[in-house]
Amino acid sequence: MNPELKAEFDKLVQNNDVVLFMKGNADFPMCGFSARVAQILNHMGTKYVDINVLENDAIREGVKEYSNWPTIPQLYVKGEFIGGCDIISEMFEAGELQEMLDNLNAA
């Protein structure tokens, strides 16, 4: 992908502990899957940066290539791609997401 765009993504996910690429924003999600992940993060009281991919086509298409993942939403923690809605939901139900985010706060 375009190295400048890649550098922007790198900066975004490395400078922020938790980043959610989503359709709509945390207050007004525009898709059920994005809404579910935002709801889980809100429920856990996680601070995160929400990026509305609908506002920018370069980001919308770019993030799919950047993550090698064809769907939105996408969650990053500490610069690492964690997954989409199904994975986040499974991790939440298994208590793994809580553990991951607790470690974050402890670090």
């Binding site: 899957f33 064809p70 769907t71 791609f81 964690i82 997954g83 809605c85 199904d86 994975i87 991790m91």
Partner: peptide, 27 residues
Amino acid sequence: NRINRHRMVYKALGDAFSGPIHALQMS
């Protein structure tokens, strides 16, 4: 891991997500 499993299925689906599939929840 979960990410790799999903990627295996995504690969099987090719570029179907750019059009003919809108929403597919996967286990």
